[in-house]
Write a protein that binds this DNA or RNA. Structure first.
Length: 103
DNA sequence: CAGTTGACGGCCC
DNA sequence: GGGGCCGCCAACT
C-alpha cells in the first residue's frame, strides 16, 4: 500500500456526479499535506480507466491548468456527462463537492 | 546520494 | 481583492 495506491483508491471511490478537491483526496488518503503528491499521482495516472482524475479539481472547483488528458474542454464535457454543472469553467463546490462521511 | 520539481493548499503581504 | 511565498511528501533527473 503505497501513498500513490491510497490516493488512487480514494479517487476511484469518488461517486458519480460528485467532485473532490486535491486537498480532500489527500485528506482521505491519510494526510492533508499530500495535495501536491495527489497532483503528481494523478499526473502519473497509470490507470485512467479506473481513475477518474477529471473528478479531481482544485479548491476553486476548477480543473488544473495543466490538465492534459484530452483538454480542459474534454474534462468539462465528461463532468457534465456525470451530471455536474459547470459555470464559467468552475464547478459549484457547495453542491457537487464529494460529501465524504469519513472526513 | 543529493538537488530540484510538481495536476496544490493555505497564509502573508 | 489580487499576487506572491512557503510548506508538505514523493518522484524524477
Amino acid at each position: 500500500m503505497n501513498t500513490f495506491n491510497m490516493i488512487y483508491d480514494v479517487v476511484k471511490k469518488i461517486p458519480k456526479g460528485k467532485v473532490a478537491t486535491y486537498g480532500q483526496v489527500a485528506a482521505l488518503a491519510g494526510n492533508r499535506r499530500w495535495a501536491r503528491v495527489v497532483g503528481y499521482a494523478l499526473h502519473a495516472n497509470p490507470d485512467p480507466e479506473n481513475i477518474p482524475c477529471y473528478r479531481v479539481v482544485t479548491k476553486d472547483g476548477k480543473p488544473s491548468n495543466a490538465f492534459v488528458f484530452g483538454g480542459i474542454n474534454e474534462q468539462i464535457k465528461l463532468l457534465e456527462k456525470d451530471g455536474i454543472e459547470f459555470k464559467d469553467g468552475v464547478v459549484d463546490m457547495e453542491k457537487y463537492q464529494w460529501d465524504t462521511p469519513m472526513i
